[in-house]
Design a binder for these strands. Structure first.
Lengths: 324, 324
DNA sequence: TTTTGTCATACGTAATACGTATAACAGATC
DNA sequence: GATCTGTTATACGTATTACGTATGACAAAA
């Protein structure tokens, strides 16, 4: 029945009829295991809630399909053959693997219920991920979500804090986390026109050093690194920020007020660039894009509530982050 | 169906009927794999030598039993779901394991045919192992056996010499061999009464040094070591053999003739001890028992002809060596 | 000798799973 | 737009499977 003759691209395996008389192999094996462990056919029948003739037939069916004698048996006793011993040991492993397989697959359809706790940066948590969140809640009536907006990484031990997952911007360094890359977010240098006081827009990175600066402390504080988009050249600038925050929105607001130059995700600035309220400085120079990841603690088993959220966010990532 | 609730000594798994409507799970999974690889239900049907409705029904059966949607399909196309992808990857491994399992089990019933080449010491090869050899030949009509009696270890490379296995007496030192312990053969010190010329029987090992000696060169040559059976004390005796052989039977014959003192397996001497033709010297002192092993070259696969011989000799070892 | 427990097998019956035939749908071609 | 080709789903009739009940043979214990 497993007589594969593998040809390039075309396997010649013929489907075995479901009613081939070989029975349901897994169930036959499970029956054999029970016979061995119970010590007799009739004891196994009792424990399995069926009858001795059924067990007798199943054992014969199995032996016939394998062409082996697994148990020597008389009207009085039975004893494992050597083939039977070998079969028993091997079957135990295989059937355990099969049970796990089915359990995992069926667990996949387990309906999530309970509370999902997610940490999200404000930049994504205020608007862009609300869509997927709403769809998640819509699909799972039994779920509640704690949506925790944080722009720092104050919470380190997700497990202790009962956090299921987080959206992290920037490199993921905690080895205890699984990181699912979702996007790369481009960043640009911006300032309000008023900060330039009528002077020309700086074109080179070197010109930026003399300007007042804003720091987005999670990603840069006293120094910024820029790369020329055409030449690939790097430039490192020492800055003394007049304003430091961990909120991308606060940074944007301070920039709009003309407090200083800031580096932030392009998508947050786009609307104000179009209105002329912000200008992109040194447009040929960019800071490195920031990776966005869905992270969650490494574990052997993940509850349905988390798996479904992960699946959904992954599926929708192109739509969420596609235009960044 | 795998809802075990394990109680000490009693498992509560109920037998699932073979016709539970879940079909033959392994075959259903194999069908699913073929669908995915063929790219459509009708292509899978063609490759499996069955019909599209059969494939359609099997896929549904599988989905129903797992409670999952594995494939999204329309009248025109089909696409794996995420559950389907997971199922596919995992099922491939499991089914490969199952195939190996069945293949190994069925290989066990392969009927041996050809020539088995065995090296045996004369002491065992002349009589005691002839019984099992005869039974082996009886059970396997297609087999011939080359039964090579050697008391030395002249043949080292069993594989090159086409030797399947050997019975070895003494320590097995070749790391390329698998050694299956069969027995421990006790040894005693014997001589003919005539050698003592009317003097008292030596009781202490030290008294043996002055006597003329016979050497069984495979096991001792210029020196013998004896252990006191009660005190555990060791005694080492330098000897100058008047006669040296690699045949236990020749040693016995020389001893019977009064040529000298010899150390040999007790079972070979028993008959003559009872007749008084030989006497056990220093009866409280014995040489170390000799291990008897069935050895064969290490390999990943053993032909049926060897496996059956090994199984038989192992099974009968207690009867063959039990009274040594 | 009787009782109890073991495994194997016959019988009647309900359920399964097959191929053939058909319907609905979608894309490509003319 | 009409026709052809390929897709999947489902109804129908039929052969086969696998079940429990009943029975027989055998062995050990009382």
């Amino acid at each position: 029945m497993m007589d594969d003759i593998q040809e390039p691209g075309r396997a010649l395996r013929t489907a075995m009829p479901l009613q081939a008389g070989t029975g349901e192999r897994i169930e036959l094996m499970l029956t054999f295991l029970k016979i061995v462990e119970a010590g007799s056919l009739s004891a196994a029948a009792q424990q399995l809630g069926t009858t001795q003739p059924t067990i007798s037939r199943r054992l014969q069916m199995l032996e016939r399909s394998l062409g082996l004698r697994l148990l020597q048996r008389t009207t009085h006793t039975m004893r494992l053959t050597q083939d039977g011993e070998r079969c028993y040991e091997r079957a135990k492993e295989l059937l355990a693997g099969w049970a796990r397989f089915e359990s995992e697959l069926k667990g996949a359809r387990e309906e999530p219920e309970g509370v999902l706790r997610v940490i999200v940066p404000h930049a994504f948590g205020q608007e862009r991920l609300i869509g997927p969140l709403a769809r998640y809640l819509q699909q799972h009536a039994g779920m509640s979500v704690e949506w925790l907006l944080h722009d720092d990484r104050a919470i380190q031990d997700y497990i202790a804090a009962g956090i299921d997952c987080a959206i992290q911007v920037g490199e993921v360094t905690d080895p205890g986390l699984v990181a699912l890359p979702l996007a790369q977010v481009p960043r640009i240098v911006v300032a309000a026109p008023s900060l330039l006081d009528g002077q020309a827009i700086p074109q080179d990175a070197a010109e930026l050093a003399a300007l007042p600066w804003l720091a987005l402390r999670t990603f840069y504080r006293n120094e910024v690194q820029l790369t020329h988009s055409e030449t690939g050249r790097h430039k490192r600038i020492q800055i003394r920020p007049r304003f430091s925050t961990d909120s991308l929105y606060a940074l944007r607001s301070a920039a709009l007020q003309g407090v200083g130059v800031g580096i932030g995700s392009r998508w947050v600035m786009t609307e104000y660039l179009e209105q002329g309220q912000l200008i992109q400085l040194a447009p040929k120079w960019q800071a490195a894009p920031l990776p966005v990841s869905l992270v969650y603690p490494y574990a052997r088993f993940y509850p349905a509530r988390l798996r479904r959220f992960i699946d959904l966010v992954r599926a929708e990532a192109p739509a969420i982050f596609g235009e960044t």
